[in-house]
Write a protein that binds this DNA or RNA. Sequence first.
RNA 1: GGCUCGAUGGCAGAGUGGUGAUGCAGCGGCCUGCAAAGCCGUGUACAGCGGUUCGAUUCCGCUUCGAGCCUCCA
Length: 460
Amino acid sequence: MTLSLYDTYAREQREFVPIKDDGSVGLYCCGPTVYNYAHIGNLRTYIFEDILRRVLELNNYLVNHVVNITDVGHLVSDADDGEDKMEKGAARTGKTAWEIAEIYTQAFFEDLNHLNIKAPTVICKATDHIEEQIAAIQQIEAKDMTYITSDGVYFDTSRDPEYGYLARLNIEGLQEGARVEKGEKRNPTDFALWKFSPANEQRQMEWESPWGKGFPGWHIECSAMATKYLGPLFDIHCGGKDHIPIHHSNEIAQSMACYGTRLSNYWMHGYFLQTDKSKMSKSSGEFLRMQTLIDKGEDPIAYRFLCLLAHYRSDINFSWETLNSASTALNRMREAYFQLPDGGSTDDNYVSRFTAFVNDDLNTSQVIALAWELLKATDVADADKKATLTYFDNVLGLRLSEWAPAEQAEIPAEIAELVEARQKARADKDWAAADKARDDLTALGYEVVDTPDGSQVKTL
RNA sequence: GGCUCGAUGGCAGAGUGGUGAUGCAGCGGCCUGCAAAGCCGUGUACAGCGGUUCGAUUCCGCUUCGAGCCUCCA
């Protein structure tokens, strides 16, 4: 069964053919800028990338999954007065830039854990790879594609005839736009490779370089680190769709300059989670993060389930109502799964339909529908349903097999007595007394449910 | 202003040139003393206008509306 993936570079779905023939796949995913917490929209992209990785593994590839940590160089804007996000975060919190990088990096990995996202095989920090970035800038400089302004070393995008192809950028159109500030830049699309430290200011993060003391631009870190760990041309590069016009276009330009490659054979992009019809934005202040959901009593896996309901290449509308509906559905699926007996084997028909769906550009939405169909199927043994769903869950990552109904807390004696009294009333067909007992229990915060095996109480 | 991408039932969201996925909610029923859960059933949904076609929600064009990028952003 062939795997086919949508490649933004080609703007079409292409059959996946790995670059190497040793069964390995190089996957680079743009990681977080650790100046603040990730929000659940950011996290949606990591869920998509996790599904991609699991599907690659389902197809028996060994995935080299590299995720970077941007802990320096991410500017608030490309203008001359652009502040570094890390330094700005430090100023806001009173901690050092290094401390906040550590804090938010830890928080990021906790979020991934909550969402059952597999840990990357390589995690690389920009600040640990300054040498590689300087070397990359030197290579670009050797091709005569850089120039120096008062605040840094810039990439001259006019020297790259294919600049912006990934985004199908209309350079002339951009130039006509009123919102583009060039400053000292020669072209509106030029970007910083190295920024100089302000003359009268001591930055917390700065390094010596052939061009003077300063720090690397944002885009060069991904090119340098991806190349270091995966080579100058690897299989798949992922990120959010907002990276298409700038960040990824720039990464490609840098790799073209250094190695004549487009860096990655496939470029895949996760779409947005919208709230109130607009994207959730880390820089605009208010946003929902994983811990916010957890504090509200939501299950992180319900959020993962919600994301899997939609295709990764379509924006999703988030609301509490939507999350609740996903949560209800997930719990029903868990309950149904839990009730099924062990010891079965996977059903060939369902497995093959499942494989076709995930291999068709990660259609998790169809897989969820298939899971419901399987649960209701009359021609598959219960134990086989469980085995088949367990197999699905290797990709879905809903932790179905780890789930069990919540343990009942100890029932106080007075509650147990009330339940017993109600049982007696029911046996006597004294419905009024039975209903009174139920009302009393409800008032005390307990729900009573009658089953063929007797009455059960649970806390409300 | 330029560019990219969208528009499916109350909500979320797949998919398809011709038999209306799936989930949540709602409604009806079965079951239950009642209830809960569960099960069964239930929806004249494909923005508008043209075009291509025997036939379009699905292909093409225009319009309207929406999102994103062009300034840091998953």
